[in-house]
């Protein structure tokens, strides 16, 4: 195991202990890799397959199935706007368009400085406080253009954690 360090492997053993079969720890461990690295590198999949004793092809198949697991890194801040029906009715498309305009990039794109990636996601389950978006997995709800401006300003100043 050249890719994972001792600390990760120790944590991974604890995750495995929650299940009667080691292979069941695959999704939580992929989630942990995503959280730590920002995407799922090939080397991580190689070592997870060996560590869990599951076929390498299964690791790829699982990593490719779930939308929160990325194949490549995103910008420092990954903004995901909800395109579910409730957000759609509450102005979601206009919010997404405003976001793309303000950052000068298209959906799926990353700003040249690597600060922002934008994409849309299916229903986030925040339909009572629509429209909603995620920034690095954190919910921001009841959004409008003014709130979006304030959010982008904070992010440009590195203030996600203080919001």
């Amino acid at each position: 195991m050249a890719y994972f360090d001792e600390e990760f492997l120790a944590k991974a053993e604890k995750v495995c202990a929650r299940y009667p079969r080691r292979g069941a720890a695959l999704l939580p461990l992929l989630g942990q890799v995503q959280k730590e690295k920002g995407f799922i590198p090939e080397e991580a999949m190689d070592e997870l397959a060996a560590f869990l004793g599951v076929p390498r092809s299964r690791v790829s198949a699982v990593a490719g199935f779930y939308t929160m697991l990325r194949g490549s890194p995103a910008g420092k801040y990954h903004i995901q706007t909800c395109r579910g029906i409730a957000c759609h009715m509450a102005g979601g498309p206009a919010l997404s368009a405003a976001l793309a305009r303000k950052l000068g990039i298209e959906e799926g794109g990353t700003t040249p400085d690597g600060l922002f990636t934008i994409s849309s996601v299916e229903c986030l389950g925040a339909c009572g406080s629509a429209p909603a978006l995620l920034v690095n997995g954190r919910y921001f709800e009841n959004m409008d253009e003014a709130a979006l401006d304030a959010l982008l300003d904070d992010l440009r100043h590195g203030r996600l954690e203080r919001r």
Binding site: R18, Y19, R21, G23, A24, A25, L26, L27, P28, L30, G31, Q34, L52, V54, R58, A61, V62, F65, Y66, T67, M68, L69, V121, E122, C123
Partner: peptide
């Protein structure tokens, strides 16, 4: 009780897909 977090797949709300997902398979 253990928590098992999904990773973005609506289909895993269907009970047999959910079980596959806990087992470390595609949902």
């Amino acid at each position: 009780i253990h928590l098992h977090r999904g990773a973005g797949a609506y289909i895993c709300g269907e009970e047999t897909a959910l079980l596959s997902s806990i087992e470390g398979l595609r949902g």
